[in-house]
Design a protein around this nucleic acid. Structure first.
Length: 409
RNA sequence: GGGAGAUUUCCCGAGCGGCCAAAGGGGGCAGACUGUAAAUCUGUUGCUUUCAGCUUCGAUGGUUCGAAUCCAUCAUCUCCCA
C-alpha cells in the first residue's frame, strides 16, 4: 500500500489541490512540505499531535518536513473559524511558547542531519516593510475573493478587523518564502486552514508562475461533531506538567464507542489490518479492549512506554481489581494543615485541589459523590484524623472515575 | 465625523426600582442504570462559619429607604449615514 493510500485509508486526508501530483510527490519521497504551528499556548495539544504524526509518517516515507513556528503569524492570530478576536499575546509570551513548542517537537520528529527543519517565520515576517509588501504581495490578492473565503464567514457577521484580515496574507507569504528558500512545494494543515493554504499556492503561482500544492488533514471530530481533545478544563495537552500521563490515558480510555476506530486509524501507527480486526468489536463490550489499546498507544507515543505502562497499571488496578497501586495520581498535604491532628473533610478536599471550593465539596458529599477508602461519606461536617494516614495514604474517590491518593508530606 | 443600539453568572439568553444569586436552554458535576461507552431519568451548578451571612449583572460616580433595573461619565462591540 502506498503512503498516500494509507493516509487516505486512515481518513486523514480532507482536501487536496491536485491529488495526482501530490500522490506522485509523497509516494516517492519527493515532497518538501511544511506545517505551521502558531504558538498560542505554552504546550502543544492533541490537534497538533495529529499534524506531528502526519509529519512523521511522511518523513518515514522519505519526504522532508519543515515545522514552521509561528513567531510572526502569532503576532496577529488566525481568525479562521473563530467568532471573536484572539487575545493579543505579548512578544515575550510568543517567544516563550515558541521555545516550548520547539522542545516538544524535537521529541517527536527527527531533526538531525537535514532530515527535517524547524524554522520560525518571525525571521522574515517581523522585518517586512509595509509598502514593499503591499507592492510585492498585496497586488496579487483580491479582497473580493478573500472576503468570500469560508473561514471568514462567521467573522463577517460579527466583525473582522483589518489586523486579523491580514493573517491570510502572512500565511501565504510564509509559503512563498519557504518555496523560494527551501524548495518547499507542499503545505499541510488542519482543514480549517484550507482557505489560507489555497491563498498560498495562489500567490506562488501568480508571483513565480510555479505550482505548489496543499493538502488538509481531516479535523478530529467526535461523533457529535465537536473538536476532540477538549475537556471542560481545557485542551488535552502533550506537556505532562499540564495534563498528566494518567489523565491523558484516561481521556482516551473514556472516549465514545463510536470514535474509537476512527481515533485508532487517525492517531496511532498501528497497522490498518490490525485495526480492521478491532472493528468487529464494535457493538460489544469488547470495544473496551480497543479503547485500552488506543489509550496505551497514544500515551506511549506522546510520553513513553514506561509512562504508558504506569497509566495502564493504575487504571487497571483502580477499575478492575480495585487494588491499590503506586501509580495512582497522588496529592500531598502538609502537616501544618492539621489542627489537633484533625482536618475538616471539606478543607481536605479543597486543600488537596481535588475540588475548587468548599461549597462544591459540600454539595458533592451531600449528593454521595465522595468516597474515602471505599466508604461513602455523606456527612460534610466530619473531620479526618491524622491517624487515618498511619497506613501511608488514604484514597479519595470523586464520582466514579476520579481517584486520588492523599499522603502527608 | 454624525446617529442608533448593545454589554447579565462557564456559554446562549430572560430580567417590571423591592418577591433577584437573578427565568429558560446548553454545557459541567453528582446519583440511578451500565461496559471507566452512549441513551435515559433525578439532583445540582457564585462564595462562606449554610435554618443565616457575604460578593456578583462592562467600569466609575450619582439619585433612592432600596438599583442588574433610573441618571452621568468612561470603555468595548454591533449597525446605519459620511
Amino acid at each position: 500500500m502506498t503512503l498516500f493510500d494509507e493516509l487516505q485509508e486512515r481518513g486523514l486526508i480532507a482536501q487536496t489541490t491536485d491529488p495526482t501530483e501530490i500522490k506522485e510527490l509523497i509516494n516517492n519521497g519527493k515532497a518538501t512540505f511544511y506545517i505551521g504551528f502558531d504558538p498560542t499556548a505554552d504546550s502543544l495539544h492533541v490537534g497538533h499531535f495529529m499534524a506531528l504524526s502526519l509529519m512523521k509518517r511522511l518523513q518515514e516515507g522519505g519526504n522532508k518536513p519543515i515545522a514552521l513556528l509561528g513567531g510572526g503569524t502569532g503576532m496577529i492570530g488566525d481568525p479562521s473559524g473563530r467568532n471573536d478576536l484572539r487575545t493579543m499575546m505579548t512578544k515575550e509570551t510568543i517567544q516563550h511558547n515558541c521555545d516550548c513548542f520547539q522542545k516538544q517537537m524535537s521529541k517527536f520528529i527527527d531533526f538531525s542531519e537535514g532530515k527535517a527543519l524547524m524554522i520560525n517565520n518571525a525571521d522574515w515576517l517581523l522585518n517586512l516593510n509595509y509598502i514593499d509588501l503591499l507592492r510585492d504581495v498585496g497586488v496579487h490578492f483580491s479582497v473580493n475573493r478573500m472576503l468570500s473565503a469560508e473561514c471568514y464567514k462567521q467573522r463577517l457577521e460579527k466583525g473582522l478587523s483589518f489586523f486579523e484580515f491580514n493573517y491570510m496574507i502572512m500565511q501565504s507569504y510564509d509559503f512563498l518564502s519557504l518555496f523560494e528558500k527551501y524548495g518547499c512545494n507542499m503545505q499541510f494543515g488542519g482543514d480549517d486552514q484550507w482557505s489560507n493554504m489555497l491563498a498560498g499556492t495562489d500567490l506562488i503561482r501568480r508571483k513565480l508562475g510555479k505550482d505548489a500544492y496543499a493538502m488538509t488533514i481531516t479535523l478530529l471530530l467526535n461523533s457529535e461533531g465537536k473538536k476532540m481533545g477538549k475537556t471542560q478544563k481545557g485542551a488535552v495537552w502533550l506537556d505532562p506538567a499540564k495534563t498528566s500521563p494518567f489523565e491523558f490515558f484516561q481521556y482516551w480510555r473514556n472516549i465514545d464507542d463510536n470514535d474509537v476506530i476512527k481515533c485508532l486509524k487517525m492517531l496511532t501507527f498501528i497497522p490498518l489490518d490490525e485495526i480492521k480486526a478491532m472493528e468487529a468489536w464494535e457493538g460489544t463490550s469488547r470495544i473496551n479492549e480497543a479503547k485500552e489499546i488506543l489509550a496505551f498507544e497514544l500515551t506511549k507515543l506522546v510520553h513513553d512506554e514506561e509512562e504508558a505502562n504506569k497509566a495502564l497499571d493504575a487504571a487497571k488496578s483502580l477499575f478492575s481489581t480495585g487494588n491499590d497501586s503506586e501509580n495512582i495520581p497522588t496529592v500531598t498535604i502538609s502537616t501544618n494543615e492539621f489542627t489537633n491532628d484533625e482536618i475538616g473533610l471539606l478543607d481536605l478536599l479543597v486543600k488537596t485541589n481535588l475540588l475548587p471550593s468548599k461549597g462544591e465539596a459540600r454539595r458533592l458529599v451531600q449528593q454521595g459523590g465522595i468516597t474515602i477508602d471505599d466508604v461513602k461519606v455523606d456527612d460534610a461536617t466530619i473531620s479526618i484524623n491524622k491517624s487515618e494516614f498511619d497506613k501511608g495514604s488514604i484514597m479519595i474517590k470523586k464520582g466514579k472515575k476520579s481517584f486520588n491518593k492523599v499522603i502527608i508530606g
